[in-house]
């Protein structure tokens, strides 16, 4: 299994709203962040939840977001960040320019 994204890659979380057991929180869907860690292969929880194998395993990433990018009117400062574990099937390469993400 090779990871599609490297550490430092800018990624967008799919703005998708499928039914069922999904472990990608709503507040990051459609948002852009940076891969800070590749945690290794994990089986797909959206399949495991229904008694299926979840194979093949896929990379799980830690993705860091500017908290101010996630919430309108966030008043905690621009340095603040939110790190979420996201499975590869939820990530796309982000378009556009980088804007000083935290690492």
């Amino acid at each position: 299994m090779s990871a599609r994204f490297d550490i430092g890659a800018r990624v967008s979380v799919r703005a998708s709203f499928p039914p069922g057991h999904v472990r990608t929180p709503f507040f990051i869907r459609g948002k852009t962040g940076v891969v800070t860690e590749i945690l290794g292969p994990y089986r797909n929880p959206e399949e495991l939840a229904y008694g299926r194998s979840g194979e093949p395993a896929m990379p799980l990433y830690r993705v860091s977001f500017h908290t101010a990018d996630l919430w309108q009117d966030y008043d905690g400062g621009t340095k603040d960040s939110t790190v979420v574990d996201v499975y590869e099937n939820w990530l796309d390469e982000a378009a556009g320019e980088a804007r000083g993400e935290t690492s």
């Binding site: 507040f27 400062g77 935290t102």
Partner: peptide, 28 residues
């Protein structure tokens, strides 16, 4: 996730503005 500094303040923990508050959501 949306107002971590306020939540921390309610626990009596005031984080200075120049310190990054990093929230980890253990979703997986």
């Amino acid at each position: 996730v949306c107002e971590p500094r306020k939540v921390l303040a309610e626990f009596g923990t005031v984080i200075p503005d120049d310190v990054e508050v990093r929230v980890h959501d253990s979703t997986a």
